[in-house]
Structure formats: C-alpha cells, structure tokens
C-alpha cells in the first residue's frame, strides 16, 4: 500500500495549491442547490404535503450529497486522468519507477476518496447547521458517498484510458451523468417515474447511494440491515468490476 500512498501524496502536494478553485464546484455549487431547490421548490412541495411530514429540503439533502459524490467521482476520472495520460504524461513518468500499474491506479483512487470524504463532511456539517440532518446515522453518509464515487471513478478511469479525445466527456456528461442525477431519486421519489424508467433507476448506482444516504439522515426512510447491505453490495460490485476494468486498460495503455 505504501507505493500507492506515495502517488496520493504527490497529488496532495499539488492540491495544496489548487484546492481553492475546487471549492466552488465540489461544495458551494451543491449548497446552492440545497438552498435554491430546498427553499423555492420546497415551498410548493411542502404546501401540498406531497412528502407527508417531511420537509422537501430535508428530502433532497441526502440526494444532493450522493449526487455530488457521483459527479466528483466521474469528474476526477475524466480530465485529470486524460491529462496524466496525454497532456502531462505523469502516468508514464510513474510507470518508469518501481511503482506498479496497480499502485498508480490505487493512488489515483485514494485521492478520489480523500476529495469525496472531505467535501462530503463539509457539506454534511453545513446541511446539519441548516437543520437538514435528523439522525446520528448521518456519520455513515461519507462512506456511502465514497463507495458511490468509486463506483463511477473506476469505470470512468477505464473509459478515459480507452479514448484519445476529450470530446467524449461532454457526451458522457449529457447522456449519462445528467440523466442519472435527474432520475435516481435525488429530487423526487422514483415511484413517480414510468415503470421503464424506474428500472433504469434501480440499475443506477446513484439511486442505491441515495437510498443509503436518505436512510442515514431521515428517520422515516430507514432501511432494514439486509436492504442496506444490498445497496452497499451493489455499489461495491460496481467498484470491483470498475477497478478490474481500469487496471486492464491502464496496463494496456502504459505497458505497450
């Protein structure tokens, strides 16, 4: 594990300089969503009582936490990974040292874990200051978010390692990331979706993470241990398969 940590350490040294510019996308923007949707749309929803006694703001906080983690997992595996392959050649430099391909990939993912843990923790703290968190189980939210972020970062890295041009990223964003964040139970229950779309939501890792996060922050949405394990297991499956794919693609690209 030590070699992977040396890769992670390198990213931290660089991040010390660039973290300020990441604050907006990874923290302020989701917070704007909470306030914007929670208060404006929430006004209508709460007036109709569609969610029973649950405030709309409280409903979307766990959803936005998860959706933010997904975006971050995907974003970290898109341009930064392409840059290290093509524009900066950092991976090629690393491959010439005793680091193995698995160390390089693991070092990248450690950085994703770090980013998601820190920004989720801050987001969570602010959300609870706004009165949006109602259970001590919320301390588990960052872990669910990490699992989700890795479920996107690992296949994302495999994808980035397989393409040559960054124009593909816009397509993935438009046809995968945005629809997923709209139809995975972040803003409204998926019961409101037509049946066909509902099955898409079941397949979406985001929906499973939203279920976990919502259970952890809102008592009324609790899960049985078996259901919680099922959601976490599904996310872990994505991480496992994604890691295996990414490793194969990295190896192919760096050792040919």
């Amino acid at each position: 594990m030590a070699p992977a940590f040396s890769v992670f350490e390198g990213y931290l040294v660089a991040y010390r300089r660039t973290w300020r510019s990441s604050v907006f996308a990874s923290f302020l923007l989701p917070l704007l969503f909470v306030v914007g949707f929670g208060l404006s749309v929430g006004g209508y929803v709460d007036a109709r009582g569609s969610l029973g006694s649950v405030r709309y703001l409280d409903y979307i906080v766990p959803g936005l936490l998860a959706s933010n983690a997904m975006q971050m997992g995907y974003a970290e595996s898109a341009y930064p990974v392409m840059g290290r392959f093509q524009w900066l050649g950092s991976y090629h430099a690393m491959a010439a040292t005793p680091l193995r391909i698995v160390d390089i990939l693991a070092g990248d993912l450690l950085f994703v874990v770090f980013r998601v843990l820190t920004s989720t923790a801050v987001f969570l703290a602010v959300a609870s200051a706004l009165g949006g968190v109602h259970s001590a189980w919320a301390v588990l939210v960052p872990f669910a978010c990490v699992l989700l972020a890795l479920a996107f970062a690992t296949p994302g890295a495999a994808f980035t390692a397989s393409i040559e041009r960054d124009s593909h990223f816009a397509l993935v964003q438009r046809f995968l990331v945005v629809p997923l964040s709209l139809f995975s139970g972040v803003f409204f229950p998926i019961a409101a979706l037509p049946v066909a779309l509902r099955f898409l939501a079941y397949a979406s890792p985001l929906w499973h993470a939203v279920q976990l996060c919502r259970a952890a922050t809102l008592p009324g949405f609790g899960l049985t241990p078996l259901a919680a394990a099922g959601h976490a297991g599904y996310l872990a499956l994505w991480v496992g398969v994604g890691f295996w794919l990414a490793l194969a693609r990295f190896r192919h690209r760096l050792t040919r």
Partner: peptide, 21 residues
C-alpha cells in the same frame, strides 16, 4: 518532459523520489 507543472522544481524531485520509497 513529463514534469508536473503544478509543482515547483524542488517538489517535482521530492515527489518523484517518494515513488522510489
């Protein structure tokens, strides 16, 4: 050149040395 543009000259060397343990 595969130097890291986000790091200083010295940090480039130290970071790389860490890859060797």
């Amino acid at each position: 050149d595969t130097l890291d543009p986000e790091l200083t000259v010295r940090e480039n060397l130290v970071t790389y040395a860490r890859y060797f343990g």
